[in-house]
Structure formats: structure tokens, C-alpha cells
Simulated assay, not measured.
Amino acid sequence: MNITKLGIGTYLQLPYFLRRVSLIAGIWLFAGLPVLANAPLRFSQPILIAQGNLLDVSLRLGSSGTRVLELQRALGGLRLLSTNEIDGIYGEQTKHAVRQFQRIRRLDVTGVADAETLQELGIDPSIALPVLVHPIHGGISTDRLVYGSRSEDVLTLKYVLNSFGFTLVENQTYGRQTFEAVQVYQATAELPQTGTADRDTLLHMGFRPSDEALEVLEISQGDSNSEVPESRYVAAIMAGPSQIIQVRREFPEATVVRDDRRGEYISLGQFEEHSTAKDWVDKARNEFRYEAQVLWD
């Protein structure tokens, strides 16, 4: 039996309207095969991590300091976190409280206090800007990392140490090898060999205070001559090039940003003011339902 003739015969017996629809659908599917073959499996999931010059202003497990205190106080005000857990350290109890808040408010339940979660809590997301920033490997939320720590900050520290020739496993654990690598670095740099990545050690490695930290330092020292480095905020849609055509229908100037380590995302523009970038992000989220957030450059 000739299957080709059978298929054509069946097709010709269809009503005219159905023949037109099936032909158009077939052409569309055939034309789209090359794109589908190369498309990522998960279109809407974020692939940008908190490394590099562009930073996700989020608080997460292992973060510490006044930023975490403000988050904990907001959670405590909702009785999601007990008073004795308000200690400025983002531990398991804080993570659990954030997850509970996100679940109740119909947010993505991640346990990470991202920009959207902070906004829902009435907290300005800019409070989560890093304390120190490395020009290549990104920011950290503290100026002191110690043996036994587990956080994204430790991972960033390892990236920096490896750039100096160390061969540390790139994970979030500050273990014995990291401790010894920091000691070797300190000995070579003629710093106290404590094995703790304190502020002096981090500054020697190339970290610099973020805008927020530098402003606080200027006020405390009364130094009006210090120059505050120019900051820039990026309105970003967390998607790859497969969605650029769709995004440009609403945002004609959108561009795909690629980085070997950070992955890909779509930039709607770079802005000097956080509020301006936030307006663009809100538009992308509220009007067009994109997964978008403000990144710090």
C-alpha cells in the first residue's frame, strides 16, 4: 500500500476549511523545528546568579548584618518569626519564615528574600545591595567570612581565591582548604595569618565597598572629599534569546546579554536611579507578566 497516496487522498477528502488550517499548521510546525531543537528546556526560569558585575539584590541563607535585621523585624511584626530569632543572621528559621510569607502572599516559595519579597514586606530592595563588591566576581553581604560558614558569599570568595591560582572546589562551604588558602594569601600579602577573610583581607583581594557602604563610611569619618563610585541599575527579564522577539514587541530596545559564567538574560536598559529601573521592571511584570527584576551593575 502506498502510504503517501493514502495520506494525500485523505487530505483531499477533508473540507476546504480544514485543509487550509492543517496546511498552515504543518508549515508553522516545520518552520519552527530548528528553533525548537535549540530552545532551552525551561524558558521562564532565572539563570542569573549573584556573581559578576550584575547582582541580584536578594537576602538568603548565610546573609548577615543590618539588612537581615530589617527583614527579620518585618517578619517578626507579622509574628512569622520569634523575637529571639531576630539576630541579624539569615539562618534556617528566617528562611522558614520567608517561605511561609511567600506561600501566604502567593509568591515563588524559594526561601530567598528577593526584590519582590522585600517589596511585599514593605522593605526597599536596595537595602540588599552588597557590603563589598569585587569588580569581576560580584558582591558579598558581609565583610567577614569565617571557617565553617556556608553561603553564596563563600562561593564568591572561592572564585576570587581561584583567580589567584588556588584550586578550591567551588561550593558554598568555608572548609579547611579554604581556611588554609586564606592563610597562604594572608602570609604572601603580609597580613595577619588568621585564616579568616576579614575586611582587610577582602579589600586586599580587590573587593571595594558598595555605594551604600561607602556613604556610611564617609558620614562616620566626616570625609567629604571621598568620591562615591557611579552606580547603575539594570531592568532585566530573566529569559534567554528564545524570547527576545516576543519581548521586543513590548520593549523594542531590549537586548540579550550573554556571559560565560552568569548565563543569559534580556536587558531592558541601564539606569542611574533604582526607582527608574524598578518602574520598567514593574511594567514588565504587571502589564506583560514577565519574570523581571532589578539588577545592580
Rank of each mutant, 00 (worst) to 15 (best):
Q72Y: 04
F30K: 13
I244G: 01
P252H: 03
L29N: 09
L202Y: 02
R144S: 12
G240N: 10
G26R: 08
K278M: 12
L29Q: 08
A284P: 00
D279I: 12
A39V: 09
Y290I: 05
V281K: 04
L14Q: 13
R258F: 13
P46C: 11
Y174T: 03
S58W: 08
L132W: 04
A239W: 00
R42D: 13
R232H: 10
L12T: 11
P135E: 01
L69W: 03
N84V: 14
Q183P: 03
Q183H: 07
V68Q: 01
I136E: 06
H134Q: 04
S220A: 15
L41D: 12
I49S: 09
T196S: 11
D297V: 08
H96Q: 10
A187E: 14
F166T: 15
P46A: 13
D153W: 00
M238S: 07
S151H: 02
Y159F: 13
I89S: 09
K278N: 10
I27N: 05
A113C: 06
T83C: 09
E92C: 05
I104P: 05
H134P: 03
Y233W: 15
G240I: 05
W296H: 15
L12M: 12
S267C: 01
E180V: 14
Y159L: 15
R73E: 13
P192H: 03
I136W: 04
G206S: 06
Y265H: 12
D143P: 04
Y265A: 01
S58M: 11
Q102G: 02
E215W: 09
E120L: 15
T178R: 01
Q93P: 05
S275I: 08
L157S: 02
G165Q: 06
G175K: 07
F164L: 12
E230V: 13
G263M: 02
A25I: 11
G269S: 02
R99N: 00
Q51L: 11
Q72C: 06
G148T: 06
D143V: 02
S141W: 03
E227I: 10
T4N: 09
V68E: 03
I140S: 00
D279Y: 07
R289L: 10
D223H: 09
P135K: 04
